[in-house]
């Protein structure tokens, strides 16, 4: 599990004058499910295209099992891609599409037939061999695209927002199926998405990107619970982000109150960003809260209620299974563990 299968070393990419990637250093281990997550234009697809061999990095190297493959053309790489809009061959039927790669490798026909059949079973499309691509639904085309890539038994499968064109229900189903496939086949997946929920559900490792720079690499739990900067906190899930002042180690001031926290090393009396997840704000009686506020709105979200609570200088977003009526004054408490301190930096939506 610790072997570095694929590694990007100091990779940068310039298109004309725009810098799509800046000093990307990233390694991917065997059998890992890695997701590149970020808003559109953040460079995640460019990384995928560099791994696939469709783009050359302006500077830097791509290593595969320690070998430099930077200038190796796509057809010599042990990597296959599932394209965003599938890119199936419309003049071939389902069987011919899936057999395309095997035919090139000059595998005997009876073996090709066996492998294609097995793949179609895997993606639940048995009996679709002779169907034309045009006669398939979006979800079925998606499955053919996955089968066409997987039948070549690649060491790494690259997936470029493969579920973006599917409706919500189909997407949820495919997320689980893809994860199961990855685990049972033991293939490394590199998955590109802008959907943070998708990233958290499926991945072993999430790489959060913005403006061509890696913001954070970590497990889904790390990324969610310990975002390294305001961008990550804001992009992954909902967050309350407040201006605060780090009085000294383990003590921070925001909303006119001093709070104990678990962070240190920011110096004394330094302005910082304070990030608090909506579900970490505890609602208590008005007298018992460290902060107080008035409920401005309540929206039912299914599992929880989403409330906006107006305090002195900040409107809090709070998730709670219990509802408080609009207009009521309530108290708010936050545990030291749930306060995340970050050095001042840019936010994503500014």
């Amino acid at each position: 599990m610790d072997e570095k299968l694929l590694e990007l070393v100091d990779v940068s990419k310039k298109f004309d004058i725009t810098e799509a990637l800046k000093d990307i250093n990233l390694y991917i281990r065997r059998n890992e499910f890695v997701t590149l997550l970020g808003p559109s234009g953040c460079g995640k697809t460019t990384i995928l295209r560099i791994i696939g061999g469709f783009e050359q990095p302006t500077t830097g190297k791509v290593l595969f099992e320690g070998q430099d493959i930077t200038s190796l053309p796509p057809y010599k790489r042990k990597v296959n891609t599932v394209f965003q809009r599938y890119a199936l061959f419309p003049h071939m039927d389902v069987f011919e599409n899936i057999a395309f790669g095997l035919n090139i490798k000059k595998i005997p026909n009876d073996e090709i037939e066996k492998k294609v059949k097995k793949m179609l079973e895997l993606v639940n499309l048995s009996g679709y061999e002779e169907r034309t691509i045009d006669s398939l639904s979006g979800g079925q085309q998606q499955r053919v695209a996955i089968a066409r890539a997987l039948v070549n038994e690649p060491d790494v499968l690259l997936l470029d927002e493969p579920l973006a064109a599917l409706d919500l229900k189909l997407r949820k189903g495919m997320q689980i199926e893809l994860k199961n496939m990855q685990q049972s086949l033991g293939i490394t997946f590199v998955y590109v998405t802008h959907d943070q929920e998708e990233a958290l559900t499926m991945s072993d490792t999430v790489v959060v990107m913005n403006d061509g720079v890696i913001q954070q690499i970590g497990s889904p739990e790390d990324i969610y619970n310990e975002p390294r900067n305001v961008f990550v906190a804001d992009f992954i899930g909902e967050s309350n982000i407040l201006d605060g002042i780090m009085i000294k180690d383990y003590l921070v001031e925001f909303g006119g109150q001093k709070f104990n926290c678990v962070d240190k090393g920011f110096g004394e009396n330094r302005p910082v960003d304070v990030v608090i997840r909506p579900e970490d704000v505890k609602i208590v009686g008005e007298e018992d809260g460290m902060l107080t506020g008035r409920v401005k709105s309540v929206i039912f979200k299914g599992v929880h209620y989403e409330m906006l609570v107006e305090s002195q200088d900040y409107t809090w977003m709070i998730h709670s299974t219990l509802m408080e009526p609009v207009g009521k004054m309530i108290g708010l408490n936050i545990l030291p563990d749930d306060i995340h301190i970050m050095a001042k930096g840019r936010r994503s939506h500014e």
Partner: peptide, 27 residues
């Protein structure tokens, strides 16, 4: 033509000339 079709052929192991004759020309 879907712009990714040629890349998909290369991705599956086709040389540029194979991709041209088997994928682009039929299209």
């Amino acid at each position: 033509l879907d712009t990714h079709i040629y890349e998909a052929a290369l991705d599956l192991g086709a040389t540029p000339s194979y991709a041209f004759w088997k994928v682009i020309i039929p299209q």
